[in-house]
Each structure stands twice: as structure tokens, then as C-alpha cells.
């Protein structure tokens, strides 16, 4: 099967180019794209990409495969039409080949203060939370920070620095939803400007591509709802 892969090493290449590789994929194989990339690296060790857990929980191998952002380790080769085109995550600075720069992505994540805030003295044991209250975090806390969503969001393309992007906002929603967190007002005030949240145009690309089947678009709508409730 033919793979067409984006190649660029700033040390040696004047500009990026696509390079074709043939991989022997048996007819009934359940090979994932990540394994195919590893076989390609056996042919050509100069191909650089990130990978670690190879089971979709570490978030290392987000890339654009046949036009959609996905995790290579969770995408079966058999689900794709040949030739399979693999490019780095969209709209992120390429360091080399399929490896992109995550600096801005993590800065946006840090902007939402992604940690529990509660200034009350903690009890001697755990804080209590009912199973129903805890269930409010489901669909939010499972994010693996792979950047598939933010990199595929047109609002992030237009305002990469001012709009926080779906991943960061999903985490904002996760802490707003936690009954143990007491910083709701500060969190909402922190997001109160024309760009941070409101630049979401509900295009829904984030939700379409999330490899963990999360719904950042709904989370952003939830934040807006809370902001409106606050009258801000």
C-alpha cells in the first residue's frame, strides 16, 4: 500500500515535500497507521514522528491522515483509502517531518489555570463528592492533550493566540464543572473578552476529530451559558 508522507528537515531541505513509501499490508491486517509508520522508519530512519503509548492515551501521535486530524495509533490502515496521505497537525509550526511545535498549544492550556482551586483548608480526609457530582466531569477530564481538535479548528487558525481553542476550553469546563472548585467567578472573569471563548463559531471540527470521542464544542457552549447566566 502506498503512503505519501510530508517531509521537511530545516537543516537540509529548502522547503517541504511529499515522499512516497510502499508498505506491505496483508489483506486482512488490523495494522494501525502507527505500525505502518514504524515499518516506514525501518526503510528510512530519517523519518521523524512522535509516539509512545501506542494505545491512544498519551496523545503523542496526533497527525493529519487523509485530511483529518487523528491519532496514528488508533487509526486502522484498513479504514483508509490509498494512497494514504500523512501530514503534520494542521496550522502548527513544523519542527521536522510530522513533529510539530506544541509551545503555543500548552500556553493556551495554561491560560485557563488547569488545576483545582479551593482556598478553604482541606479536611483531614477526602473532600466529599457524590457520584452524580463526579459524573459531571465525565466527558471532560479524559482529554489527552493531543491537539487534534485545536489544530483542526478554523477559529484557532484565525486567532491562534487570542482564542484559547477547544482543548484549553475543554479543560476550563472540566474545572468549572468540579464541585470542589471554588474559583468559578474568577475563571469566568478570566475568560471574559471577545476572543478567549466567544471566537468559537460552533464549526464543530473539534468534536468531529476528537480521538477520545469527547465534545469540546458542547463544553464551550456550556461555558458561554455560564457566562450569560452571570450576566457578563
Amino acid at each position: 500500500m502506498r503512503f505519501s508522507i510530508y517531509r521537511y528537515n530545516p537543516e537540509t531541505d529548502a522547503k517541504p515535500y511529499m515522499k512516497d513509501y510502499e508498505v506491505d499490508v496483508p489483506h486482512d491486517s488490523d495494522m494501525m497507521v502507527l505500525q505502518a509508520l514504524m515499518l516506514i522508519k525501518d526503510q528510512d530512519e530519517t523519518l521523524s514522528f512522535r509516539a509512545s503509548c501506542r494505545e491512544g492515551v498519551c496523545g503523542s501521535d496526533g497527525m493529519n491522515i487523509n485530511g483529518l486530524n487523528r491519532l496514528a495509533c488508533l487509526t486502522p490502515v484498513s479504514s483508509l483509502k490509498a494512497p494514504i496521505t500523512i501530514r503534520p497537525l494542521v496550522n502548527m509550526t513544523v519542527i521536522r517531518d510530522l513533529v510539530v511545535d506544541f509551545t503555543l498549544f500548552f500556553q493556551q492550556y495554561e491560560k485557563v489555570q488547569p488545576y483545582l482551586q479551593n482556598h478553604a483548608e482541606p479536611p483531614a480526609t477526602e473532600r466529599l463528592q457524590s457520584p452524580e457530582e463526579r459524573a459531571a466531569l465525565d466527558g471532560l477530564y479524559e482529554c489527552i492533550l493531543c491537539a487534534c481538535c485545536t489544530s483542526f479548528c478554523p477559529s484557532s487558525w484565525w486567532n491562534p493566540e487570542k482564542f484559547i481553542g477547544p482543548a484549553g476550553l475543554l479543560w476550563a469546563a472540566r474545572f468549572l464543572a468540579d464541585t470542589r472548585d471554588t474559583a468559578t467567578e474568577e475563571r469566568l472573569a478570566n475568560l471574559q473578552d471577545p476572543f478567549s471563548v466567544y471566537r468559537c463559531r460552533t464549526i464543530m471540527n473539534c468534536t468531529v476529530v476528537c480521538p477520545k470521542n469527547l465534545n469540546p464544542a458542547a463544553a464551550i457552549a456550556g461555558i458561554r451559558h455560564k457566562m450569560v447566566e452571570k450576566g457578563s
Binding site: 488545576y115 483531614a124 477526602e126 473532600r127 466529599l128 457524590s130 457520584p131 457530582e133 463526579r134 474545572f175
Partner: peptide, 19 residues
């Protein structure tokens, strides 16, 4: 465990609200 819970670790809960 209590330190982790205080840090915000989203433990699953029992009916009585404990970890």
C-alpha cells in the same frame, strides 16, 4: 491519597461521597 484528592484528582465516588 488525601493529598491527591485535595490536588483535584477526579476519583470515582461511592454513594456516601468518599473515594
Amino acid at each position: 491519597m488525601y493529598e491527591l484528592e485535595h490536588m483535584g484528582m477526579p476519583f470515582s465516588r461511592l454513594e456516601n461521597g468518599k473515594i
